[in-house]
C-alpha cells in the first residue's frame, strides 16, 4: 500500500506492505535506526516513538494505521530543549550502558517531564514500568528524570 505520513517534520510517502510495523518502516525504509526493536509485543518499550504528539509502541502500529500520522523518532528531537536536558542528565547520572533501550527510554522520559511536572520518584518509576533496561538497574534513569523535573520546577518559580 501507498502510505503518506510525516516523520520528524518531513512529509514522506512510501510503499509498504500493510503488515509492516512502524518500527520496521522507520528503520528499513527511512534508515532511522535509532528506534530499536526489543520484543515486538509491546512490553519492553525499546521501540517507543512519538505518534501524533504522544508516545506509542512503533512495533504495534502496522503500516495502515500510520497513514496520515505525524511521527517523531529519537532522531527528531535535535532542537528540543527538554530532550537536550534529559540527554545531559542521562550522561551525568550514568543512565545508559549498552544504549539499546535508551531512545525509547528518552521518549518516555520526555513525556513524563512534560505531562507530570510534579512527579515524585515513585511516580517516575511507575511511569517507567513499560520500558525495560537490562543494564543499569534504573537508578541513573530515575535520577536523571528527577533532576530535569526539579530543574524545570526551579526555573518556573
Amino acid at each position: 500500500m501507498k502510505l503518506s505520513l510525516t516523520v520528524n517534520g518531513q512529509a514522506t510517502t512510501l510503499e509498504a506492505e500493510p503488515r509492516t510495523h512502524l518500527a520496521d518502516l522507520l528503520r528499513g525504509e527511512l534508515l532511522l535506526t535509532g528506534t530499536h526493536i526489543g520484543c515486538e509485543h509491546g512490553v519492553c518499550g525499546a521501540c517507543t516513538v512519538e505518534v501524533d504528539g504522544a508516545p506509542a509502541r512503533s512495533c504495534l502500529l502496522h503500516a495502515g494505521a500510520c497513514a496520515g500520522a505525524s511521527v517523531r523518532s529519537i532522531e527528531g528531537f535535535a532542537e528540543d530543549p527538554v530532550m537536550a536536558a534529559l540527554r545531559e542528565g542521562f550522561s551525568a547520572e550514568h543512565a545508559l550502558q549498552c544504549g539499546y533501550c535508551t531512545p525509547g527510554m528518552l521518549v518516555v522520559a520526555r513525556d513524563i517531564v512534560l505531562r507530570l511536572p510534579h512527579a515524585d520518584e515513585a511516580r517516575v518509576r511507575e511511569e517507567l514500568a513499560g520500558n525495560l533496561c537490562r543494564c543499569t538497574g534504573y537508578r541513573g534513569i530515575v535520577r536523571a528524570i528527577l533532576g530535569v523535573l526539579a530543574a524545570r520546577r526551579g526555573a518556573a518559580t
Binding site: G42, G45, T48, V51, A54, P55, A56, R57, L60, L61, V108, D111, E127, A129, G130, N131
Partner: peptide, 9 residues
Amino acid sequence: IAYRPVRNR
C-alpha cells in the same frame, strides 16, 4: 492499564 504508550493508543 498497561503502560502510558499503550494507553495512548
